[in-house]
């Protein structure tokens, strides 16, 4: 095998060899080469020492309630989506908007052509006149009543008059 370090791709071969990701054929070939190449042996030893040092940084334990919290977040999100679809139902608002706009235009046009009837001045003053007429009528009735009483007393006996 040619020397990977002399050929320029030595770093990749050394890294892959130490990581254990070389294919079987290349792996055994490189092992044979290391038997005759001290530079490659030193490079591998240095990388293996680094690999071992990096192994010191082990994994931290995951909280036992990790899954529970995740599924709770998923459930909350799905509940929120359900409420949002109720409050703002997107499945029908889009076709409804132009229909609502058309209805508003029609209503506006109708109102312009047929404005609402207004109350006339006569109608506004009519209740006042009626009240005055009633008052006059009552006054007349009083007067008539008084006149009726005097007429009756005029017809009374002369002796009563003396």
């Amino acid at each position: 095998m040619y020397c990977p370090l002399k050929n320029g791709d030595g770093a990749e071969v050394v890294i892959s060899y130490v990581a254990g990701t070389l294919d079987a054929e290349t792996d055994s070939e490189f092992q044979r080469h290391m038997g005759t190449c001290p530079k490659c042996r030193d490079a591998v030893a240095a990388q293996e020492a680094l690999w071992s040092a990096l192994d010191a940084w082990g994994p931290v334990p995951v909280s036992p309630d990790f899954d529970y919290k995740l599924f709770r977040r998923i459930a909350e999100e799905e509940r929120g989506q359900w409420w949002r679809s109720l409050a703002w139902p997107q499945w029908w608002w889009r076709p409804a908007m132009p229909v609502a706009a058309a209805c508003a235009l029609l209503a506006g046009a109708f109102l312009l052509r047929h404005p609402a009837p207004t109350i006339s001045q006569e109608a506004q003053t009519q209740p006042k006149l009626e009240i005055e007429q009633v008052e006059h009528a009552l006054d007349d009735m009083d007067l008539l009543r008084q006149l009726g009483v005097e007429a009756i007393s005029d017809k009374a006996s002369p002796s009563e008059k003396i």
Binding site: A11, E12, I15, A45, A46, A49, L50, A53, L54
Partner: peptide, 19 residues
Amino acid sequence: KSLLYRAYESLRTRLAHMA
């Protein structure tokens, strides 16, 4: 590959005393 080469080289230098 280039990133890994440079990274491991830096780490080897820095952590050489751990060998």
